[in-house]
């Protein structure tokens, strides 16, 4: 039986008739223009599906869309604003922090939440923060460096509070 579910994604309400069993990751990805959130292991291990829920990173494969109603969801598409990259995106670009790109949206959203809470994280803090994400290409070194780069270049883009 379908019910009406409204989820606020990147500041806009998205309303659809869905079964309650619809997972948030699929609700997001089936919204036109929002396939940046990746659907990976489906078992809350890999972190490719990480989005922010009220500013905190969550694995959207293990949240029901219905449970996200009334909460603010932020996906990777919200990072770039008016054609200008978020410092996290710029850092990934500058320091070559991705190869295949599959883990990247989850890594970047986790990094964004980390920097919002802790603008000057140590390497150890960065490594702990991204430990819920699996990258099979980079060996993490460049991802950690990219997040440090973003921490050191916060003013390159104006960010909303």
């Amino acid at each position: 039986m379908s019910v009406q579910i409204t989820v606020n994604i990147n500041g806009e309400d998205v309303t659809r008739e869905e079964e309650p069993r619809k997972l948030l990751v699929h609700f997001i990805r089936e919204t036109p223009g929002l396939t940046g959130t990746h659907w990976g292991c489906d078992t809350s291990n890999c972190g490719a599906c990480v989005v922010l829920m009220d500013g905190k990173p969550v694995k959207s494969c293990t949240v029901l869309a219905a449970m996200a109603q009334g909460h603010q969801i932020r996906t990777v598409e919200s990072l770039e604003r008016d054609g200008r990259l978020d410092p996290v995106q710029q850092g990934f670009h500058e320091l070559h922090a991705l190869q295949c790109g599959f883990c990247t949206p989850g890594m970047m959203m986790t990094a964004r939440a980390l920097l919002d809470a802790n603008p000057d994280p140590s390497e150890a803090e960065i490594r702990t923060a991204i430990s819920g994400g699996i990258c099979r290409c980079t060996g993490y070194k460049n991802i950690v460096a990219a997040i440090r780069w973003a921490a050191e270049h916060p003013a390159t883009v104006e960010q909303e509070a």
Binding site: S44, G47, V50, P57, T62, T110, S131, G132
Partner: peptide, 9 residues
């Protein structure tokens, strides 16, 4: 226990 993202939920 798990990882920081899982621990948020």
């Amino acid at each position: 226990i798990a990882d920081p993202v899982v621990r948020n939920r």
